Amino acid sequence: MTDDLAERLAAWLEDLGLESHLAEAGLPSFTRDASGLAQWVDPHTGDPLTAEQLDQLDTVLHSDGSEREYAVPLALVQLARQARVRKTLLASPVHSYGSLAELRGESVNATRFAVHKASAAHALLVVPHHRDQLIPAFQLTAAGEPRVEMLPLLLPLLSAGMDPWHAWAWLTQPVALLGGLVPHEAAADPDEAALAAHAAVRLAERVVSSG
């Protein structure tokens, strides 16, 4: 019975494409042995899950939704979506301190100081990624300077403490409140800049209220 449950949970998560997000969610994860059977392990001890632990995991994974057999682990779905969004963002033009220094024609130290100063003033979005700091290129001019028209968008969002990844995604994807326009592009349009700034302020207010 334990082996059946272990395999059923593993196959279900694989069908949903969520198996790679278990560890990130702090849940037990599994690998498949040489015969293809799912081997579940406790994230804290590394030991195989007991029958009781598997039952508990089954309950947790099916806890969302009114009909248990159709429930989907929403936390894992959200992590999977977040991973897809981050992958898309990372594929867009970004700068490190080194590449931005080269573009600006100055030393890395000078660029790092300028970036830190602008970031502290909430005038530049800097996104942490592992041990690196990424500077998304959409907010910069061709010469590597901050776009002045971005300040009315960046200032409220970053002052509100919005997660940098979420800010990056919002600024670079179509937004319903802007009629499907992309905020950072709308900011460069004199006819849309005020609406883009208003949308940023409204979003910042929601960030503060939810914090």
Rank of each mutant, 00 (worst) to 15 (best):
V85G: 00
Q82K: 12
L79A: 06
P164T: 06
M162G: 06
Q133H: 12
A101C: 03
V85P: 00
Q139P: 02
Q139W: 03
L57M: 01
E67A: 15
G144P: 04
R81V: 13
G105Y: 10
Q82G: 14
A118M: 13
L155K: 13
P156W: 04
L74F: 13
T141W: 07
Q139F: 05
S119C: 08
D58V: 02
R112C: 01
S119H: 10
H129N: 03
L154E: 07
A91L: 09
F113Q: 15
R86T: 02
A101T: 03
E149Y: 00
P128M: 13
P128W: 10
P164H: 06
R147P: 06
H129T: 03
S99A: 07
Y70E: 14
T141R: 05
E149G: 03
R68V: 15
V127R: 02
A91T: 10
H62M: 12
E145A: 14
L79R: 10
L74V: 15
P136K: 10
R84M: 10
D64C: 11
S96T: 13
V72H: 04
H122R: 12
W165S: 07
H129E: 04
P152M: 07
P146W: 09
H116A: 14
F113C: 10
E67Y: 14
W165N: 03
R131I: 12
L79G: 01
L100Q: 12
V108H: 04
Y70L: 15
L134H: 01
A75I: 08
P164E: 01
R81D: 10
L157G: 04
R104T: 10
A120F: 02
A83C: 07
R84F: 03
H122A: 15
S119M: 08
L61N: 04
S99V: 01
I135K: 02
A83R: 11
R131Q: 14
R84V: 12
R104H: 03
A143E: 13
M162A: 13
L74W: 12
A118P: 03
L153R: 07
A80D: 02
L155A: 14
